[in-house]
Design a protein around this nucleic acid. Sequence first.
DNA 1: ATTTGTACCGCATAAAATTCTGAAAAAATT
DNA 2: AATTTTTTCAGAATTTTATGCGGTACAAAT
Lengths: 160, 160
Amino acid sequence: MDNSIKVKFDKIDRKILEILQANAKITNAQLSKDIGLSPAPTLERVKKLEQSGIIKSYHAKLDPEKIGLGVSTFVLVSLIGHNKGNIDAFMKEINQIPEVIECHHITGTGDFILKIIAKDITAYQKLMLEKVSEIKEVDSMQSMVILSTFKDSKVLPIPE
Amino acid sequence: MDNSIKVKFDKIDRKILEILQANAKITNAQLSKDIGLSPAPTLERVKKLEQSGIIKSYHAKLDPEKIGLGVSTFVLVSLIGHNKGNIDAFMKEINQIPEVIECHHITGTGDFILKIIAKDITAYQKLMLEKVSEIKEVDSMQSMVILSTFKDSKVLPIPE
DNA sequence: ATTTGTACCGCATAAAATTCTGAAAAAATT
DNA sequence: AATTTTTTCAGAATTTTATGCGGTACAAAT
């Protein structure tokens, strides 16, 4: 049995997705030229991709430095227990901390990996001590400070 | 001396940035209502934020599952040497692998952390064996497979 | 061969973005 | 405190873009 949600899209749709991932602000007219269709069916395809949930949302990407966010980190977090209750409680706390941009449940070293962004090291330390460490389900943490980012692509490689 | 690029923005700009991070497809008319200005100055502010580089770009966010990307991982990579030449060579190779979505230079355990996305475990293994491991500057690697993602916010917390 | 459905185009219209002009507010200067 | 200068704003006009609507071609199925 196959429970996965299948949404089919062809070569043209794939091209649309690639373009919109890289540049969501392109006009429909330009997009239609790039993919070799007229504007009407182009827009129709985009709408379908949105409705089907293949395109989830559109976002502006900011320059962290320019808005005063100088420190980004990954944090490996181990919980004291691995039962559902603990994980849910942990997640609830994490969701209330806007500086925690990502939270993934992972295999391997720790239980979770977080991506955190803060103004500076001082603000980061404060955040970790007063917010993250305070979550009672948290056992140990290991921080990895990002020294520089070489690649941060918003374009996923669509298979086939 | 302060070499950082200072770009000032006020409370209204901050609100614009928050909104556009969460929803880049909002119309200028609606955005202007949300922030309490008329369309003309609202657009002017957005354009300035774009020109100053505070807003870097706009992107469509896709559903990885629905485009057939079932496996995401973080990989800690140690290089055999830490000199600039090695790092540059490594970066050059990494940039040619579209499945590597992110690459950050970090402190701590390893030298780099990568975010990789692939169709399935088989494709992931193949990618790691034939592409990533083959980079001669790579010493050791440690993979962390993402079991589930609880938070993946595109909204950075703007300080002040 | 006929039907049925799908995807396309071109055009008309609606909506949105953008530009322009002048007024008001804020900041700086005297 | 008054004046000048600069910045920011609103409203209307214009341009650009998105959207909706037949109508047509093509493909698959009967």
